[in-house]
């Protein structure tokens, strides 16, 4: 787990947005002048209340704004030093980006195996290479191995979240965006998801994590941004944010009770 807040020494950041503004037509601007950075190898979280613009930031990074009739109105998005501001979603995936969408969004009518194969679309795996990539992903999420022929729509919420994560890993991403991976899951499953995120990061993938569960997110992040009304309200290391009493009270849950220890059954 990387809790090192200093900029990574090697190479450009996994993600850098500079002055990004985005909105959805008549609905006005959802995100204004947003600059954030995910250094390579780190977990960075994006926190804030509902409607703060977290998902819009994700879409601006992944190129999915257009699908929601949204638009980037200013700023720049770079992945590993490469400008992808106007690039299509597929080009960004090829550049090393993968994402777990809010609400998991597995393909319900496709089998688990087919969901996983679709995650490797840009890699053009052939025969053995596909199985190899899948086995690699399944070492991290072994439970899915027994469910390969099951239709994804019949999985439990927790299993669907695991599948969404596994599917995203199939393209061997260098940067993973995760939008509310703990949403609607039982506390025990949230612990599992957290451990998986840590393992993914330890294997070398940088992560941008959007969470309502601020405590969980901060416990594994090296840096965090607090969004409010589409702007960065505060940013810093988890320690710094937790020490600021106003922020801690308003965004991280009243009081600064210690983070739940890993593996604890709450």
């Amino acid at each position: 787990m990387s809790r090192d807040a200093s900029p990574a020494s090697d190479g450009p950041p996994a993600l850098r947005t500079t002055g990004v503004s985005a909105g959805y037509g008549a609905a006005g601007t959802a995100v204004t002048d947003l600059s954030l950075r995910v250094p390579q190898g780190q977990v960075v979280s994006l926190l804030g209340p509902n409607g703060a613009g977290k998902t819009t930031v994700m879409r601006a990074v992944s190129g999915l704004l257009g699908l929601h009739r949204g638009r980037l109105t200013g700023g720049r998005v770079e992945l590993f030093g490469k400008d992808v501001t106007g690039a299509r979603a597929s080009q960004r995936v090829r550049a090393g980006l993968a994402q777990c969408l809010e609400g998991r969004m597995v393909f319900p009518g496709l089998s688990v195996a087919e969901n996983l194969a679709s995650g490797g679309h840009v890699r053009r795996y052939r025969g053995g290479a596909l199985t190899e990539a899948r086995d690699e992903v399944l070492t991290l999420l072994p439970r899915l191995g027994d469910l390969l022929d099951r239709k994804a729509g019949y999985l439990s919420g927790g299993e669907q979240q695991m599948l969404a994560i596994a599917r995203a890993l199939m393209s061997r991403p260098k940067l993973l965006l995760m939008d509310e991976p703990s949403l609607g899951l039982a506390p025990r499953i949230v612990e599992q998801v957290r451990d998986i995120i840590v393992s993914i990061n330890e294997a070398g993938t940088s992560i941008l994590l959007v969470e309502q569960n601020a405590r969980m997110a901060l416990s594994i992040s090296g840096y965090a941004y607090l969004l409010e009304g589409g702007r960065v309200y505060a940013e810093g290391t988890p320690e710094a944010l937790e020490q600021d009493n106003d922020i801690a009270a308003a965004y991280l849950g009243a009081g600064t009770a210690p983070v739940t220890p890993r593996g604890a059954d709450s």
């Binding site: 597929s90 969408l101 496709l110 393209s171």
Partner: peptide
């Protein structure tokens, strides 16, 4: 088939 199931999720996998 993935696109038919969900355009957003298909886009997220890099499917054009």
């Amino acid at each position: 088939r993935a696109t038919a199931s969900s355009q957003e999720a298909a886009l997220a996998q890099g499917i054009d």
